[in-house]
Design a binder for these strands. Structure first.
Length: 611
DNA sequence: GCCGTTTTCGGCCCGACTGTTTTCAGTCG
């Protein structure tokens, strides 16, 4: 049982309890538990036998700890099975339809025996819903529309997919006359890997022109609601956008409130209450008197803590650290000096080697690594040993063509099904930078996959593991492996872990990156760009790192080139010839290292010997 | 169901909007 699976049971249990009209605070306890379990980096499976380990998690007491143990051991827990029997299975799904909550779903079921989306749609078309207490014609229409236009699989949107339209809407509103400030809040501002909707805050005196400009925007498919302070629309791409108009004196409180997370807000409110104050989206108040509200900084300061970067606002330990003054200084996009995972048209990229290097340099980076695929990915024109040897000259040529940037000769080498690397050792020895990645046989059972990855990182040539779990968000589940063991061994060996910045990967995820740091594992952030335009994806990798609480020092490619060379795995590949290359450039690895390094090269791994 | 210098009971965040209602329940965030 993985953490997400346990969390899902708690989440469903919470909904079932709501349908059962249970104490709302009990419901909340299960919701909270689901959230805590889902964001816990270490598998709870490993903790069940450790006394008090589960109870140490916030919001997990004796009862929930026992339920976690039951779920890990038997796949379920008695109470879940009992409550589940009380309701038809489709009811949970019905509570996800917009406008329907537990109360109305219960009414639908008790009076009209509606148990599924199909039955709901049929009843709505027959105009049966409008006759029920608490329902009406408008709600019936709204439900019909939701069922027809929003199939359940269209839930959240990737941050990368929402970025362009979100920033476009913000810019458009900024240009409306009288608008003083526009901020994109919500999970977008917290830089979650996917967002459910978009929250936009506007500071201005007159809301009418703002609401008009917003709801008449050409990307709007449907206006869901329009009030004086709030309007909601559905865009053609399915994204729901809410705009709120806020006065200057409470803009900070509103930004804080609508940025969330909900759990973070609840925590802050609790602290306000402890001080005898009240915090809402209008400000921090004591009775009639406003204490703070104009800026977020002001509110946090009044509550006795430092301003917390939005990426950390998930009710982990950020509030505690903000009070103690020990918040991390999160890594920033500007800290990065290199992109260490890029493809060109020599394998499956779209742009030429020269265009890629030039473009990286023009973005202000001072070094980079070119990393084509290896031969087992035949459809990507992956490189074999001979092609790598040919590539040596191509890289030397591009170094001459594009001055002002160091170019590492790298490769993204496939990890084969048994953990061996997809390139012979002589060819590996020609490379400055070896990314090892999983691309196939991703469905292996966890123990096999763990052994495979451990085998691969033992290979002395491996510098970094690319997109470690190979997940594609919403499309492909992460490869199952014992991440704790992999990270611990990687840390010992000096193999770094990549935070792949492709928006549908962001792999390591924030949760795993946090775990990597806890294990002392070095990390890189790279784009895996297959074309010049994708070099801009770097921001999504930085977001994941920031959400994991990572600082500049945690990321290898923030180092200046000379220090980077010394920091990466040493003695790994056999050294390159010490004779300077014909262009007078020093070889990237080898000449700077003591000769003894080559001799003390670790014994080849089993995988290497087999080849 | 959790939690605790207000501790083993009795609290637990709170406002806007909608659609229904004719003063407010339900939902949402």
């Amino acid at each position: 049982m993985t953490n997400p699976e346990i969390a899902r049971i708690f989440e469903r249990l919470a909904t079932l309890l709501e349908l059962d009209e249970a104490n709302p605070f009990r419901v909340r306890a299960y919701r909270e538990a689901a959230r805590v379990v889902a964001s816990e980096g270490r598998p709870l499976e490993a903790k069940v036998d450790e006394e008090g380990a589960l109870e140490a998690l916030p919001g997990i007491g004796k009862d929930l700890a026992q339920k976690i143990r039951d779920i890990v051991h038997t796949g379920t827990t008695d109470m879940y099975e009992q409550v589940r029997k009380k309701f038809p299975p489709g009811l949970i799904e019905l509570t996800e339809v917009q406008g329907l909550g537990p109360k109305r779903v219960r009414t639908l079921w008790k009076t009209l025996d509606i148990k599924s989306r199909a039955e709901l749609e049929k009843a709505a078309k027959a105009e049966l819903l409008r006759q029920l207490p608490g329902f009406g014609e408008k709600l019936e229409q709204k439900i019909l529309k939701t069922l027809e236009h929003a199939p359940p699989e269209l839930g959240r949107m990737l941050l990368g997919g929402a970025w362009a339209v979100a920033t476009e809407i913000a810019e458009r509103l900024q240009r409306v006359r009288g608008v003083e400030k526009v901020e994109l809040a919500g999970s977008f501002r917290r830089r979650r890997e996917s967002i459910g909707d978009l929250d936009v805050l506007v500071q201005c005196h007159d809301s009418e022109p703002v609401m008009k400009a917003f709801t008449s925007h050409e990307s709007v498919a449907d206006v869901l609601g329009m009030g004086e302070t709030k309007s909601s629309v559905k865009l053609r791409n399915g994204l729901q956008v809410d705009v709120r108009v806020v006065p200057a004196e409470s803009f900070g409180a509103a930004l804080l409130y609508f940025t969330g997370s909900k759990a973070h807000n609840i925590e802050l409110r609790r602290i306000a209450i402890e001080k005898g104050w009240s915090l809402n989206e209008y400000g921090l108040t004591k009775g009639e008197k406003t204490i703070a509200g104009r800026t977020e900084e002001e509110v946090y300061r009044a509550l006795g803590m430092a301003w917390i970067p939005p990426e950390l606002r998930e009710a982990g330990d950020e509030i505690e650290r903000a009070i103690a003054g020990t918040l991390p200084r999160l890594v920033e996009l500007e800290d990065l000096r290199a992109d260490l995972h890029m493809h060109t048209d020599r394998s499956d990229g779209r742009d030429t080697l020269e265009a890629m290097v030039r473009s990286v340099r023009d973005r202000g980076y001072t070094y980079c690594a070119i990393t084509e695929h290896s031969k087992s990915l035949a459809m990507t024109f992956g490189f074999d040993g001979a092609r790598v040897r040919q590539s040596v000259d191509e890289i030397a040529a591009v170094r001459r063509q594009v001055p002002g940037i160091e170019v590492l000769h790298g490769l993204e080498v496939d990890i084969l099904a048994d953990g061996a690397l997809d390139l012979d050792d002589d060819a590996l020895a020609l490379l400055d930078w070896v990314v090892i990645s999983l691309h196939s046989r991703l469905d292996q059972p966890a123990d096999v996959m763990t052994a495979r990855v451990l085998e691969a990182i033992e290979h002395p040539a491996a510098c970094v593991m690319g997109h470690p779990t190979a997940r594609l968000i919403g499309t492909r589940a992460p490869a199952q492996m014992d991440m704790g063991r992999v990270l611990a061994r990687a840390a010992e060996l000096g193999v770094a872990m990549e935070i792949n910045a492709q928006p549908d990967r962001t792999d390591l995820s924030d949760v795993n990156a946090r775990l990597a740091k806890a294990n002392g594992c070095a990390m890189t952030i790279s784009t895996d760009a297959h074309g010049v335009s994708q070099l801009d994806f770097m921001r999504y990798g930085v977001f994941a790192a920031r959400r994991a609480g990572l600082e500049k020092a945690d990321i290898l490619n923030t180092l200046p080139f000379e220090r980077f060379r010394k920091a990466i795995r040493k003695g790994a590949t056999p050294v390159r010839p010490t004779k300077p290359a014909s262009d007078g450039r020093k070889p990237v690895r080898g000449s700077g290292a003591p000769a003894a390094k080559a001799k003390t090269k670790p014994a080849k791994s089993r995988a290497a010997r087999k080849r």
